[in-house]
């Protein structure tokens, strides 16, 4: 039954072995050619107070006096021994910075993923039950509006309604100001999650609605569904029985493969809501010329997207037996 899983994992492991170094080279070229001067970014407003000798000293301390190729070889050698270097901005090892912030982002992204999956597929199924009806048209219109609304804009609208106007929910951060994780109640933390999660989930919903709807309508008109109908099954029973696998399976695959997009969206959402996650750190690292952190985050994101795609492949095979291949058979 799961004879296909082993070979799939091996194949993906091999793929990661050449994909990661290739991505690292590309990233390094991009980062080292970025128009941001790391020293200038570091010095900031004190730029007039610092002389050329000091600048040279900083450059030497960071290794910026070496040519890019030498720096890359050094970086690769360090990474191979598990050292991703130190973040310039956070003054801490890159791995520590990422590990500190990744859980907050993961929480945000996975809740948004789950929320958009439930809403997207749910609306898709409801729309498919009565294609062409007023309900169906309303749901499709909603999906079109959602697709055309940028996530950060939705975030700002949500803040202006629920935080500024109604004063129901906090507009920023993961915790009430001045508290630590240990002090804050579960509800206080949950309240801070609501707006960012809703804003982030918005982008993922529309494709799911349309995808699920199309798949479900396709199945309800297919010979297997007709065969069941002919023997007395109601449309509802078919949709929620045999139809779920046909409609939700592909939706699950699409949504898992789209997890990377969600991760990208979290950069915007975290910025708008001042969420202390990896997205916020990405923006700081990029604008502050923090090359080691940027490289670390980019590789972590690569791994995240890679795992998301792999899970999508596994889910597709679990749902649809025709996609499984088993060399032993």
């Amino acid at each position: 039954m799961t004879g296909w899983l082993g070979p799939l994992l091996v194949e993906r492991a091999i793929r990661l072995c050449w994909l990661a170094p290739l991505a690292a080279v590309g990233l390094f070229i991009l980062v080292s050619n970025a128009p941001v001067d790391p020293i200038e970014a570091y010095v900031g407003a004190r730029t007039a107070l610092i002389g050329p000798e000091q600048r040279e000293a900083i450059a030497a301390a960071w290794g910026l006096d070496q040519p890019a190729t030498t720096r890359f070889v050094l970086w690769v050698r360090n990474v191979a021994s598990g050292d991703f270097g130190d973040s310039i901005l956070y003054n801490a090892p890159v791995v520590t910075v990422i590990m500190d912030r990744f859980p907050a982002s993961l929480l945000l992204v996975s809740l948004a993923w789950l929320l958009s999956f439930v809403i997207g597929t749910g609306l898709g199924i409801v729309a498919a039950m009565t294609p062409g009806s007023r309900v169906d048209r309303a749901i499709r219109a909603y999906a079109v509006v959602l697709t055309s609304s940028p996530g950060f804009w939705v975030a700002i609208i949500l803040i202006s309604i629920f935080a500024v106007g109604l004063k129901m929910l906090p507009s920023c951060c993961a915790l009430p100001p001045g508290t630590t994780t240990a002090e804050a109640t579960f509800w206080a933390q949950g309240r801070h999650l609501i707006l960012p999660v809703v804003a982030l989930s918005v982008t993922g919903i529309a494709p799911l609605v349309l995808h699920t709807r199309a798949r479900m309508i396709g199945f309800l008109e297919s010979p297997p569904a007709q065969h069941l109908t002919a023997h007395g099954a109601s449309q509802r029973a078919i949709a929620f029985g045999a139809g779920l696998r046909h409609a939700l399976g592909p939706a699950l695959t699409v949504h898992l493969a789209g997890a990377g997009e969600l991760f990208g969206g979290s950069i915007l959402a975290e910025t708008v809501f001042a969420w202390p996650g990896l997205g916020q750190a990405t923006v700081r690292a990029a604008t502050g010329g923090d090359a080691p952190l940027l490289m670390g985050i980019a590789l972590a994101t690569l791994l995240f997207v890679f795992v998301g795609n792999m899970l999508a492949d596994i889910a597709a095979r679990l749902v649809d037996p025709r996609l499984r291949w088993d060399k032993s058979r």
Partner: peptide, 11 residues
């Protein structure tokens, strides 16, 4: 039915 496509491919 005539066509064997009346069987659900996923079950």
């Amino acid at each position: 039915p005539q066509g064997i496509d009346a069987l659900d491919p996923m079950a």
